[in-house]
Computed example of a mutant assay.
Amino acid sequence: MTDRLRRWSRGGIAALVLLALAYVCWRVAAALAAVLIPLAVAVLLAALLWPAVSWLHRRRVPRALSAGLVLLTSLALLGGMLAFTVDALVSGAGGIGAALRDAVVATRDWLVHGPLSLSEPQIDAAVDNLLSLVTGQTERILGGATATAAAVGTALAGVVLSLFALYFFLYDGDRLWRNAVQIVPESVRERVDQTGRRVFHALSGFTRATLAVAVVDAVAIGAGLAIIGVPMAIPLTSLVFLGAFVPYAGAFVAGCAAVLVALVTGGPVSALLVLALTVAVQELEGDVLQPFLLGRVVRLHPLTVIVAVATGVVLAGVVGALFAVPVVLTAREIWHREDGDHGADRTAESDTARADDARSAVG
């Protein structure tokens, strides 16, 4: 009994030490978020783009030129998509506003002359309260303009840092990693090297599979919106594409924006059709795309993914939702690496093969 209590006490102390370390790491990460988030984005993008760089390098294109070409091409594609989306949203905002006003008038008439038979003074009072609420928030919005400008400046600085780091990750990532590994003690250096390369390999598969899922979601919902006749189908499709980078939930949330646009512009029937389309695409993603594309790479239960995304949203908002699954993947690879050292189900041959694949990927 004494030995058991002693083991429990040691386990409790170890758990407290781990919790303390996790808390310290969290506070440090929060303090350095303006630096760590751009670097984390650069790592994910490097994991996505390294196959293209390696493909060019194998065809005798210099590594520096390969990294520059891939980076510039990716920026051109992403910048063009964002510019087109913003332009379409701005140009279609007038039509959406007119449709929204018509919907408000139609709703008011239905509330007064419909089955509810509300009195006009009641409706007018509700409208006045709504207008007062909007007017009251105007001052707060204007007062936050300075903070918004500061946030935009910080975001631009983060973008520059992320692009700068991304280029060097693509161009010289293997040497940077080797230099980083030299910091750790020699007794665990080989283990850290293999684990880090396996993590990068897992992130590469995750980002490529997520990109494929996002493309399929966007094409399916975009085609459906065009057939139903929802205005601004292309910018809404772009929103679905960007939202799909958050597994399971992102495309559905972006699809709800299309449902609102359909409700305002086309009425309840169009909104129900778009809702049915969004649910159908979500089922396609959950039952077919995620198991076949992401399932083979991520190997995480959907409930685990949803809980991770929800936890990320609570802790860090949109940024947390974006990095939730990569963080879980990284933790799993590290844990399995330690498991393998104690005789878990992974064989040494499979570990070596995956480490070699990751080394060739980075190099």
Rank of each mutant, 00 (worst) to 15 (best):
T2Q: 14
T2G: 12
R4E: 15
R7I: 12
G11T: 12
G12R: 14
A14F: 00
L18V: 14
L19H: 02
C25A: 15
W26D: 14
W26R: 10
A29E: 01
L32N: 07
A33V: 12
A33K: 07
V35L: 12
I37E: 05
A42Y: 06
A52T: 01
R58V: 05
R58F: 08
V61K: 06
V61L: 11
L65M: 12
L72V: 14
T73A: 15
L75N: 04
L75D: 00
A76Y: 01
L82C: 02
A83G: 06
A83E: 02
F84C: 00
T85H: 07
D87Y: 02
L89M: 11
A98L: 10
L100H: 02
V105M: 11
A106Q: 12
T107H: 03
T107M: 11
T107E: 13
D109T: 14
W110H: 10
W110V: 04
L111S: 05
G114Q: 06
D124P: 04
D128Q: 11
N129I: 05
S132E: 15
Q137I: 00
L142Y: 12
G143Q: 09
A145T: 05
A145G: 14
A147K: 10
T148M: 13
A151D: 13
A157S: 10
S162D: 08
A165C: 05
L166T: 07
Y167W: 13
R175C: 04
W177F: 15
W177I: 10
V181N: 12
V184A: 09
S187F: 07
V188S: 09
V188Y: 01
V188R: 04
V192H: 09
Q194I: 04
R197N: 06
R197E: 12
V199A: 11
F200R: 00
A202Q: 14
F206R: 05
A212R: 03
V215F: 02
V215R: 04
V219Y: 03
V219R: 04
I221F: 01
G224H: 05
P231K: 00
T237M: 13
T237L: 02
V240R: 11
F241D: 11
L242N: 06
A244R: 08
P247W: 01
P247G: 10
A249D: 00
A254F: 01
L260W: 13
A262E: 11
A262S: 06
S270D: 13
L273P: 09
L275S: 10
A276Q: 07
A276S: 13
T278K: 08
T278M: 05
V279S: 02
Q282C: 06
D287Y: 08
V288D: 03
Q290I: 08
F292M: 15
R299E: 15
P302A: 04
L303M: 13
T304D: 15
I306C: 01
A308L: 03
V309T: 08
G312D: 03
V313F: 13
G317P: 00
V318R: 01
G320R: 06
G320D: 03
G320P: 00
A324I: 09
V325H: 03
L329G: 03
L329N: 01
D339E: 14
D339L: 14
H342V: 09
D345I: 08
R346K: 06
A353Y: 14
R354C: 05
D357Q: 13
A358Y: 02
R359P: 00
S360A: 13
A361G: 11
